[in-house]
Amino acid sequence: MIRVAAALAKRELVRFLRQPSRVVGSVGQPLLFWLFLGAGFTPSFRSAGLEGMTYLEYFFPGALLMLLLFASIFSCITVIEDRDQGFLQGVLVAPVSRLAIVLGKVSGAALIALFQAVLLLLAAPFLGLIPSPGGAVLLLMGMVLASVGFTALGFAIAWGLSSTSGFHAVMMVFLMPLWMLSGALFPVTGAPAWLYALMVVNPVSHALELIRAPFYAAPAALFASPAYLTALAVAGGWAVLALSWALWRVGRVEKGA
């Protein structure tokens, strides 16, 4: 099963590298968002408890998360393309486990997302954001969890859709808001009560915490912090649930009445 998943994941990587527009699009957009919004909002950014932090710095983990989200979305669009073009049918009739099909897609997408995230991370030292070696490992883990969560969720949604334009609609009204309400753009503290409630139950907020915290605290301190441990549990649970949903969707065969 692992070998089948690895072969499918490899296909994702090869396809990605052969379509330079995808590389440019999914690294370029978060980078431009970060640079423009970051530079533009920095003069007016004053948040309680975050004195001395530029918006460019505040928004950086959010931009990383956005990149992971976009990489996942692009990968999920290929689910629909594969269906249209028949590639998926060929995989489905092979005697392979459905779990291998899901893991192949999700791990391929996660690897692509991480590759892009590393490119954006090259900007971190210029902000003075240099995590410790242990912190870097935790950061990597946070990014993997977030990208698995996004991709598995997108996969499960895309599986039932017949058009890529339909997926764009879902992405704009469902996936983007998950990111917007994660604390990527503005802090959770200080938001109106109804928004605060939405942000706290949003699993993506917790994924963001996993990406933001390792820049500022040592691993030992993080594992002693209830906030970080909660975030880890929620983001992990989200990834597992999304994966299970995707697996259930793939395993379901259309039945007659």
Binding site: A6, Q89, V91, A94
Partner: peptide
């Protein structure tokens, strides 16, 4: 099974497609 719509990946080379199929089996 040979489907009406092509089940090969157009972005991959011939041998890459065949190796992928090999891996599935």
């Amino acid at each position: 099974v040979v489907f009406q719509s092509p089940a090969v990946d157009r972005h991959l080379s011939v041998i890459e497609n065949l190796r992928l199929q090999g891996a599935l089996y």
